[in-house]
């Protein structure tokens, strides 16, 4: 099972701190499943071109097994069946 952790404003939208999904594929596909579960507005906010451009989230960082997908294959990054995915607002730290 893929475990997805939500935090901060994203958790406020989902109402869940975490969820598990029976899935293996890529990040884009995982976001589609999350949209089914939490509503299309969530996926739209996560990947809005206005917030980042190029289909990559601008105000949200997505990590697969601890690595930022911008260092991997962006939305095409593979998500294994036992992967951990973190969705974290980009504006924090420093």
């Amino acid at each position: 099972m893929v475990t997805v952790y939500f935090t901060s404003a994203i958790r406020q939208r989902t109402g869940d701190y975490e969820t598990t999904i029976d899935y293996a594929g890529d990040v884009q596909g995982l976001l589609r499943l999350l949209a089914n579960r939490y509503g299309p507005q969530l996926a739209e906010a996560l990947t809005s071109p206005q917030s980042g451009g190029g289909g990559l989230p601008g105000y949200v960082n997505i990590y697969v097994d601890g690595t930022d997908i911008r260092h991997l294959q962006a939305l095409a990054t593979p998500v294994g069946a036992d992967a951990t995915v973190d969705l974290v607002p980009a504006v924090s730290g420093g």
């Binding site: 901060s8 404003a9 994203i10 406020q12 939208r13 906010a45 996560l46 105000y59 607002p89």
Partner: peptide, 8 residues
């Protein structure tokens, strides 16, 4: 929170 719950 540091991010907007609508558009993050």
């Amino acid at each position: 929170s540091a991010a907007c719950s609508e558009d993050f």
